[in-house]
């Protein structure tokens, strides 16, 4: 006899063995907090949004010299344009995140559900990538800005030897690279742990299509 047929025969009888919950037990259960990965993903994305927004406005609020410098730099149309652009992108991301969370539905097929969760994770990933590239863009940009506006800095740079300049560039690249690796590892860790099982199951379903 087929193994599964034997199992099926027994399966029908298992129903009586379960402890049956009463109405009054189900009520509190349905209002308990969920511990699903979608919820965790949601908290992480909110955390990231808040982190990057704080990272951009806290220096402005806390340091008056920074504020003065920033106010002055807004006179530069390039800088002003970039700032407006980055705030527009934040709004766009909030919208995209909201939309992709709305599209996660437990009544979809398993594969579609997994796809919408992975899509949401991608939105967060792009948001982080955007922030990282803005930081990298701002390093040479502030360098250039300082060179144009600050006479002392201008003098130091023009008088520096090629070796000294190479050294400065080297340091900038090194710091940037270390920063990037740390953030990258951090993300691998968070999403790696959180989505390991989902990715495995998604691959299992995808594998069938080949």
């Amino acid at each position: 006899m087929d193994e599964l047929e034997l199992l099926k025969k027994d399966w029908k009888n298992t129903e009586t063995k379960f402890e049956s919950y009463s109405d009054s037990e189900i009520y509190p259960m349905m209002h308990k907090k969920s511990s699903s990965i979608v919820k965790t993903l949601f908290y992480i994305s909110i955390g990231e949004l808040v982190f990057w927004i704080l990272a951009s406005i806290l220096p402005y609020l806390l340091s008056s010299t920074f504020r003065e410098k920033l106010d002055k730099s807004y006179e530069n149309p390039l800088f002003l344009g970039l700032s407006i652009f980055s705030y527009a992108v934040i709004l766009l991301f909030i919208y995209l995140l909201f939309k992709s969370y709305k599209s996660i539905s437990t009544t979809d097929s398993a594969k579609r559900l997994m796809e919408s969760i992975l899509r949401t994770r991608k939105v967060i990933k792009y948001y982080v990538l955007f922030n990282l590239s803005m930081i990298f863009l701002s390093i040479p940009l502030s360098f250039y800005f300082e060179y144009q506006e600050n006479p002392e800095f201008h003098k130091v740079i023009t008088e520096a030897t090629t070796t000294q300049m190479l050294f400065v560039y080297g340091i900038i690249i090194l710091v940037g690279a270390v920063f990037l690796i740390i953030i990258w590892l951090f993300y691998r860790l968070i999403y790696g742990i959180l989505l390991k099982r989902l990715n495995r199951n998604y691959d299992e379903l995808k594998k069938l299509e080949v």
């Binding site: 199992l7 399966w11 979809d108 097929s109 398993a110 299992e204």
Partner: peptide, 28 residues
Amino acid sequence: LNDIEKALVFLYLEDKDYREISTTLGIT
């Protein structure tokens, strides 16, 4: 068995036909 295989077994034990199994999991 892995999670997906369990799902197939579960639906099979519940007497679901292949059409329902395929739409539940999102495969053909």
